[in-house]
Amino acid sequence: MKLDVTTIEGGKAGSIELDEAIFGLEPRADLIHRCVRWQLAKRQAGTHKSLGRSEVSRTTKKMYRQKGTGNARHGAASAPQFRGGGKAFGPVVRDHAHDLPKKVRALALKHALSAKAKANAIVVLDKAAVAEPRTKALKERFGKLGLASALVIDGAELDANFGLAARNIPNVDVLPVQGINVYDILRRDTLVLTKAAVDALEARFK
């Protein structure tokens, strides 16, 4: 698969051949879905908590005598059916993460990249670097390139000025190549790869 390489100013900088084994697969929604669920479950805090009947601060005195009142037998005001009592089967602090094999995660990333390639939603830049960290100037350049919602993947090291200029632009994310993931690829309309990122991805999957 051959794509044109553009500069950040919108000019042409040759072309690049993308590896069909990474960018030319037939996307499988089930693999991508499994990986997105794994990512979102892994980052969920799980700090939700409610008090059970053994944790609420209520008196332990018997509410009323056992027999003769015509009411049900009760021995604690902390029971769930009473106002101010503990919650029955409430949420507890727990880890929501589940396992996903490493090979499945790698394959899902390939399929996410292939899905963007199939949708013609990949832009290749020669490099993601600017002289000054000016958000307004970078936003105008993105406008010329037609990038309203984009994930920019650079090489192992991000250009500091580019990162500063891009961080205040809505719907634009910038990540080093080691941070590329399925969820961030899917949540933006366009995937922007630098030549360094393409080389790193191809080296990673070989």
Rank of each mutant, 00 (worst) to 15 (best):
T7R: 03
R43S: 07
K62H: 05
G11L: 06
C35K: 00
G163T: 13
I8R: 04
G14K: 09
S50H: 07
Y64N: 00
T190Y: 05
F82A: 11
A156K: 12
D4W: 06
D99Y: 08
K144P: 03
L51N: 11
R53W: 03
N161E: 09
D30R: 02
H48V: 12
V93P: 14
F89P: 10
N171T: 15
A115Q: 14
N120C: 04
C35L: 02
A203D: 10
G75F: 09
T190A: 12
S149F: 03
R141C: 11
G11P: 07
V124G: 00
S50Y: 06
D99W: 08
V123G: 00
R187W: 03
S149H: 02
Q178K: 08
L125P: 00
G155Q: 04
Y64Q: 01
L100I: 09
R94I: 14
Y64L: 01
G163Q: 09
L186F: 04
T190L: 08
L151W: 02
A121F: 04
P80N: 12
G52C: 10
A203W: 04
A29E: 11
A197P: 03
E20A: 15
T7P: 03
A88S: 14
D154I: 05
A115L: 13
H33K: 01
G179H: 06
L113V: 02
L193Q: 02
G70N: 04
A137T: 15
A166G: 13
R73M: 11
Q39H: 02
V172H: 01
V177H: 01
H111S: 03
S57I: 08
